[in-house]
Amino acid sequence: MGFLSLFSFFKKQEKKMGMLVLGLDNAGKTTILAQLADEEITSVAPTTGFNVKTVQHAGLTMNVWDIGGQKAIRKYWKRYFKNADCIIFVVDSTDQPRLEEAAVEFSQLLTEPELKGHPILVFANKQDLSGASTAAEVATALDLVTISDRPWQIQGCSAKTGEGIEAGLQWLLKSLDLPTDK
């Protein structure tokens, strides 16, 4: 069109996809967000609101929303459901005493009308630490096998080392049935 420009804010192609990262406090959501954005991992303070990043992956642009998981602010999660095409639920696999609490929050999400049919990926995080429950154990705690109304997947990972993150993301993108470059 003949105009010069400074930047193009977005590559023109795609509809941007929304991912919501939820889970109890200290599950590792913000570190997973940093991994997804290919950032260096540093220590993070507890999230008291949201962190949203535009992430590029395989030619797709995604808005990834990491929402704080402290008990007092979980009631606000639903305010962000409209941004989501899919859900990443993060579990601290070393926090066995709170697995049940995580399961309660998880099962609540499955009943939300705004999230109906949305693919859900569960990261069984902190697999690099000794004493972590396995992905299978976390799957059992969350009763994943009973889910029949949406695609779901359990993936062991370490947000700290990055192990398992890519595999989980690949599954999510595939479950959304989106065209990719690769």
Partner: peptide
């Protein structure tokens, strides 16, 4: 962003591409 929680600290990161 839509909703921002009371007493919250939030962050937003976007990417711009060179033309």
């Amino acid at each position: 962003f839509g909703f921002a929680m009371p007493g919250s600290t939030n962050s937003f990161e976007s990417i711009i591409y060179s033309a």
